[in-house]
Design a protein around this nucleic acid. Structure first.
Lengths: 194, 194
DNA sequence: GCGCCTTGTGCAACAAGTTGCATAAAGAAT
DNA sequence: ATTCTTTATGCAACTTGTTGCACAAGGCGC
């Protein structure tokens, strides 16, 4: 659905080979749309076939194991522009940890608090990483249109991490609170607390 | 990955048939882990085969088009309890709208503001729905362990919607601000603003 | 020259999720 | 009685995403 457009965007920002794209996905676009090199190569093939991109004519092209750079053609740019304005509903959340909290209601919370703490640490680390990028890339003023939009996206990432950190702290407190007394009856069944 | 556990949780809360599960997914568990009836039937088959659940012996079982209720067996309950404490990293965000904002940086923001406004309305509606559920199910005190955990999960949903609403408002303002002057050169290329 | 590591491209098989449709039973409508 | 709708289960085909591996070229050590 969205991967081809992510690739088109990356290629418009800078023509690249498959592996270069993979690396760039690992640090910037991949923060909100990750992809493995496999997906990227497959999609590059499709995009080339459909005429949205083309391989730059380099020294020698046809062999395997040789770098192959792509650039976006006008048709690809048009498709991307159309996608930007397309009507497409937001996808509902899909989060396994929330599911696990819910499951803990019926089978007990044993071991969950440690996992919540671990996630908390991971989200704090991610927040720190985002903040470092913000500092580095959007420190001073004088922002172009591209910069302002990129910063906006980054701020979504930052605020999302902040949300998770806040919520996980609440969750940890709640689990600790349930902990002591409830640990015993959680093992046999949760209904006893009522 | 998580779907079988979502189903086990739902079945422990109340033994059900495939279609009943589908309906329940549409209103409660599905808020953070959605599934179609197809996925659910397939997964029920696998879970039954692996001995995690079994069909309740009803009037007549074997025919098609006949309701078939399932309940969780001890093995299934144990698997679920193990999953609750399992180490599993949070998945990175995957959001098409953020991607579209980023794409707008290179192909122009035309048509995006309307889409942002539409999403804003959808998230406000979702928030209202969650708040109504909160009012209905967790209005007064006297909460059991299950209730407290369920409420915690619901609050994650509520705060996530609040996050999106806040961010989308910022985005809309930013797009409106870029709008007037930038609309012209966005069509030809974004670099002109620098 | 020969092994070895890195860079680079790609196939194949699988897992998860989506879409469209077929089938069957039971009850309501006429 | 027969048609229509609702409830219910399920197959088949497809798309997306993941994992493991194969293969090719070039640079480096010795």
């Amino acid at each position: 659905m969205s991967l081809p457009y992510a690739i088109l965007t990356a290629l418009l920002e800078k023509p690249s080979s498959g592996l270069e794209l993979t690396r760039r996905f690992d640090k910037s676009i991949g923060y909100f749309w990750s992809a493995t090199h496999q997906q990227i190569y497959r999609e590059l093939g499709k995009l080339e076939e459909s005429g949205a991109i083309r391989a730059l004519p380099g020294p020698r092209q046809p062999t395997r194991g040789q770098k192959k750079e792509y650039e976006v053609l006008p048709a690809g740019r048009d498709e991307l522009a159309a996608w930007v304005a397309r009507i497409e509903d937001p996808k509902p959340i899909r989060d396994a940890l929330l599911l696990r909290l819910r499951a803990a209601g019926v089978v007990g919370t044993e071991g969950l608090e440690a996992e919540v703490r671990r996630h908390l640490a991971l989200h704090r680390a991610q927040l720190a990483e985002y903040r470092a990028i913000e500092e580095r890339d959007f420190g001073e003023g004088g922002k172009s249109e591209v910069d302002r939009l990129r910063h906006l996206v980054l701020r979504a990432g930052i605020d999302l991490e902040r949300f998770w950190i806040g919520w996980l702290e609440t969750a940890r407190a709640e689990l600790a609170d349930l902990g002591a007394g409830a640990a015993a009856d959680a093992r046999t069944g949760p209904a006893a607390t009522a």
